[in-house]
Design a binder for these strands. Sequence first.
DNA 1: CGCCGAGTTGAACTGAATCAAGAAACGTGG
DNA 2: CCACGTTTCTTGATTCAGTTCAACTCGGCG
Lengths: 191, 191
Amino acid sequence: MKKLIEHLKKTIDINDSDLEIILSKFQSKSFYKNEEITSFGKTSKYFRFINHGLLRVYFIDNQAKEITVQIGTENTWIGDIHSFLTQTPSQYHINILEDTSISQIHKTDLETLFQQVPIMERFFRLKVQRAYISLQERTLHQLNKPAAQRYLEFKRKYGHIEPRVPQYMIASYLNISPEHLSKVRRSLAKK
Amino acid sequence: MKKLIEHLKKTIDINDSDLEIILSKFQSKSFYKNEEITSFGKTSKYFRFINHGLLRVYFIDNQAKEITVQIGTENTWIGDIHSFLTQTPSQYHINILEDTSISQIHKTDLETLFQQVPIMERFFRLKVQRAYISLQERTLHQLNKPAAQRYLEFKRKYGHIEPRVPQYMIASYLNISPEHLSKVRRSLAKK
DNA sequence: CGCCGAGTTGAACTGAATCAAGAAACGTGG
DNA sequence: CCACGTTTCTTGATTCAGTTCAACTCGGCG
């Protein structure tokens, strides 16, 4: 939980007793390579913080293709906010790319925390805000830049992850076909 | 402020004294058709709730074209969350399409409220969550559906607004060229 | 060794952008 | 209330980025 503690302290001012209450609601869990936390169709009940590892969130579109939505590594939160909050079935799958250890909290425990430890409300607000901002940036980028630029941007931001993720997953994250990504890479390499 | 009060009550459980404190931090303001709240480059200091009217948020992309990001009418919040929270210059312009009356709150007043009235923290969290969810839905829709379907979806959701907004703004909201939207409309009308 | 998933390459195709020109609608001043 | 200029909308021709399809290569792993 070390990573989680650091993360909490970095985000909000928090005293030790509140911290203890918060941590008591989290449980640690490990997943192994190629496992599927196949939450498709299930309502997602947990919010997860990645201490260590690598995984991806994706869904299946109407042409039965996998679309990668998020690639997560240490110090990021993973969760289907939509399903989690509205308690409706999730559209997403989660798939473990490298052995991963997480800390997770159950929805009802989180609700309890909101009542019990008001600072948690603030923490969650800040997290959702961050998520919103980066989603917005990514969206705008996605819509207005050609594939090559999106790929370069991905490398700039996630360069350390790139070699650990199969290319076709990156392609779907960038919303281009695997074939096209291959061509883009070649044409960039020439220079 | 009637609309704002309704809106607050619908979102959270709130007692009269808290409500009074909250409302005291808001100020009412009117804007008139074709006005520009040209906040580009300026750090956005207000968060705004639309009581009545119509406006749009847009930015200028690197080809000097206007991209409409949001179209707002009564009972919606308008604000550049990014700029507002990070206090960095905004990329966006706001442009009044029909006479509009809003209630706005200054950033520092909002921060005060967060301390003073904890329920406000919850309110804002819920708002940002909603915003996140709908941005996510829109993004996925945008990326995976052809222009015609996006247009139909827009009509389904914003049918009442459509006739009040110039077509080229709708086109840029859907991320297609005005010419193409015109063609899409024609081909849909034929059926 | 043989197979299988991942990546590459090229050819044909397609949805949408761009360009250019004209038609319609709109609002402002006389 | 009409005339005029300015926006907005339409239409067709051309071009382009990216997809799809199909065949092929490569690297690992049972």
